[in-house]
Design a protein around this nucleic acid. Sequence first.
RNA 1: UCCCCUGUAGCUCAAUUGGUAGAGCGGGCGGCUGUUAACCGCCAGGUUACUGGUUCAAGUCCAGUCGGGGGAGCCA
Length: 473
Amino acid sequence: MSTPSPITVANLFKQGLALVGTRQRVQGWVRTRRDSKAGISFVALTDGSCFDSVQAVVPNTLANYESDVLKLTAGCALEIVGTVAASQGKGQAVELHAESIEVHGWVEDPDTYPISPKQHSFEYLRDVAHLRARTNTFGAIGRVRHCLAMAVHRFFHENGFLWVHTPIVTGSDCEGAGQMFRVSTLDALNPPRTPEGKVDYTQDFFGRETNLTVSGQLNVETWCMALSKVYTFGPTFRAENSNTSRHLAEFWMIEPEIAFADLLTDAKLAEDLLKYMFKALLAERMDDMKFFAERIDKGCVERLEKFVAADFARMDYTDAISALEDAVKKGVKFEYPVRWGIDMQSEHERWLTETYIGRPVAVMNYPKEIKAFYMRQNDAGKTVAALDILAPGIGEIVGGSQREERLERLDARMDEMGLHKADYWWYRDLRRYGTVPHAGFGLGFERAIIYATGMANIRDVIPFPRAPKTASF
RNA sequence: UCCCCUGUAGCUCAAUUGGUAGAGCGGGCGGCUGUUAACCGCCAGGUUACUGGUUCAAGUCCAGUCGGGGGAGCCA
């Protein structure tokens, strides 16, 4: 008999009963093995194509039953050829009746194999990150992550956006969004010096100081001023010493930028994007979402369903502050005082979105003093057209703004903030040559995954987390 | 960076006021069973993170070091 070509576990289950009687070949890794002295063993095999494992029923008549099958433990790699049959047991519609099993890779010491079929702590699994993808949770995270990433690209593509590959290495020190990682090939122990004794970066690889990007925004604005609707989606680096469950030193950020657009258009875009992503997740990965609802966060599916169904609330920063002040009067306690002009604390944001509004809320028009120089100044002169989207359970998930398109206003703001205009010459050029109102925002990809799955720590929704004192693997 | 918590078997965790280290899972062997986080019995497995101190006696108390977690700030 010929050997059938391989089928994924996902396709096997998708076609299900229609395949009964056909011969199939599956390839994957052992989850569990259970022996029945009635003369068969059950081998659960996963290949990552879906949440479920396929159950192979292995008769003891196979030539290598004693020598191989009875020695299988979690993690062994193998392929099985067999006939699809309706399952006699509960838990699966179909199973594979094995006619041959080929072991590709044994687990050399099952006693110390780090991934057992039982529960592990996430902290422990971070120490074995090279193997954690083999667990239920991280397999599910991997598929959810992919699903959301593809949804992002699909959403933008379907809406006429172009994906712009902004640089990872940046020569501009004017991004201003946080501490940066230096990129250098100079000898750190003995760098070339200028006559004044400073490090002479003109002798560095790029002939100047360079860093890893903290945002593609300034670069992507240049392409927005020609292609109208653009976005970036790539790795972003922040050298902040942030030790929290919501920060990474290397994370992936989505930054759309739209020409001829104001702040309300921007908010609508953010809402549409998030809803599109989560709709896709609910439609395509219910197998994994059910698992998250069962084991990680009971309410996660319901939360997403509500999220995609409800309109986001919109409110001005000024009204948000008023609401907070009223709450304080009525006895709500905050650690930090509330008054107009403050940069809202996490506790304030959480109260707004979780208690006061009860769903995602777009807060707009912040005091200019607490926001970036490039945000568009509103007429009264006190606020800028900034936008934060706050979501229950996670806080700020999107930060954006309408950009200041008027050169004289931009220059005035840069002067006020003590920025060197010469450093921003190309950014300012955009305001000199055919400037238009435009807007954009940044969405932290991992934060969206946390929100969707209920995973508690951002280090567990990226394959290999980078954070202070953490860069293993 | 600050505050709090924490480190015991391969993993998840116990161990009273300081009194000689234990269970479940996983692993090995055997039994039983179309099994499903299978079940039953037996066995192996530990310098209690490290260094020092207090004490007749330290997993337990103290100090330091290292690691981990949670919260805060910053932000996405």
